[in-house]
Design a protein around this nucleic acid. Sequence first.
DNA 1: TCACTCATGTAGACGCGTCTACCATATTGA
DNA 2: TCAATATGGTAGACGCGTCTACATGAGTGA
Lengths: 250, 250
Amino acid sequence: MSDDLPNTDLSESLEDYLETIFELVRDHKVARIRDIAAARDVRSASVIPAMRRLAEMGLITYEKREFIDLTPEGDMTARRIYARHRTLTRFFRDVLGIPNDIAQKDACSLEHSLSDEGMDHIVRFLEFISSCPEGGSVLARFRNCALVNGESRTCSGGCSVSASERMQSIAKTVSLRDLKPGQSGTVIRIDGTGPVRQRILDMGLIPGVHVILERVSPAGDPIWIKYQGSQLSLRRKEAQRVLLERSPSP
Amino acid sequence: MSDDLPNTDLSESLEDYLETIFELVRDHKVARIRDIAAARDVRSASVIPAMRRLAEMGLITYEKREFIDLTPEGDMTARRIYARHRTLTRFFRDVLGIPNDIAQKDACSLEHSLSDEGMDHIVRFLEFISSCPEGGSVLARFRNCALVNGESRTCSGGCSVSASERMQSIAKTVSLRDLKPGQSGTVIRIDGTGPVRQRILDMGLIPGVHVILERVSPAGDPIWIKYQGSQLSLRRKEAQRVLLERSPSP
DNA sequence: TCACTCATGTAGACGCGTCTACCATATTGA
DNA sequence: TCAATATGGTAGACGCGTCTACATGAGTGA
């Protein structure tokens, strides 16, 4: 009942400080204001109020002009944060194939905000990949299917499905340009790379979205589509890149 | 050269406001201060400075006591943010199997911080799942292997690998408790659920980590392990839950 | 038409996290 | 031993994003 400990949850900033201290203590035995400031790329003066707050919360020992260390509780907390960081790094790098440096940076940003539930499912995915006998090959297929030279392309090479299955799957895939007004489909993927791809994705045409072709301008070039309650126009060139699974016509 | 536009990147908060306006305009044709405040769960008074800043940046039209609307540029920006949101939601829900409401919340937090590169790889994973003929079955396997009743368990049922492959894979998997001092292995998964699992993960024992068993206390209960430069002790009960792929002894 | 209501806007405050500028202390080397 | 230097700490400022309390306007019913 006693609300002694002002144990407000750590802010992102304080979590970062704690994590930094953890790494410094691990690598250099001690943590000093100066090192913390350097690691976080802030001025020393900014570190001090943060240290005071962490000390108040009982997570670090901080006496003026002495080395900073983690209390047992701070160590636990830091480890937890750090584990989140590494889980995310691993997921981004080893599953999604993001280059290590970017994976690190993203992990840094996301470790603070992803829910426990979200983290747990990511861990489960990692477990799946490393424990299911088929898990490993999933990644190989992912790379083959979607990550060849960072370029999205038709799944053809790596997949060990029968030719008939493949043909069937390809047959159902049409470009948005091939739809007639009134017809609809579900986005499977966006062909190609670069700014055009990005623009299409930015507009919200991502895999899984259900799109209806509303009308085609007389000239045939701008076409109007509708999805998820909003309507917008697309160049023909862009529409061609959007690959759909055709929905049965009503 | 002319630095006219004070086009500092949007803060998280402003991104959220813009996204909220986008949704309101889409669903109700107009956006009012009051609705924005309600949607974001803040006071009306807090909305006003935000609107002023968005208007200064040319993203919304905001005249005193008139309806708020998006400028074309604001619409583009909002769509982009919103597309990120939906991409993440879809990934969390449809790939990782996170319940919809939690997926939404996580998407809200992460949409601001994930790098473009990270987003792109997530999109590619979605494309893989929906376009590779084998993609769909990957998810089924993931659910079978790792998500049965939200419980981590041995991969056995759903996998279509030969019995011999499976036996081989199981044979290589040992519990951390079975290691002898000096031996090491790579974490494959943590058995079970609940707080013990969480504690183990919090300590940083996540799939892919390389662990060395340092020593076992005479009584056999606390065991000391070392990984990633740090050392810690584990209860025997916990160690049993940590499943490894044994590394060849030196 | 006039008071009431409610959405909108203003003023001022606060906490956080940073900064700059300056002060204090400890360490070190000539 | 004592001054130079590096490290740590203090004071005060600022921007952001929120709040509360109050003011202003615009529509509404009696």
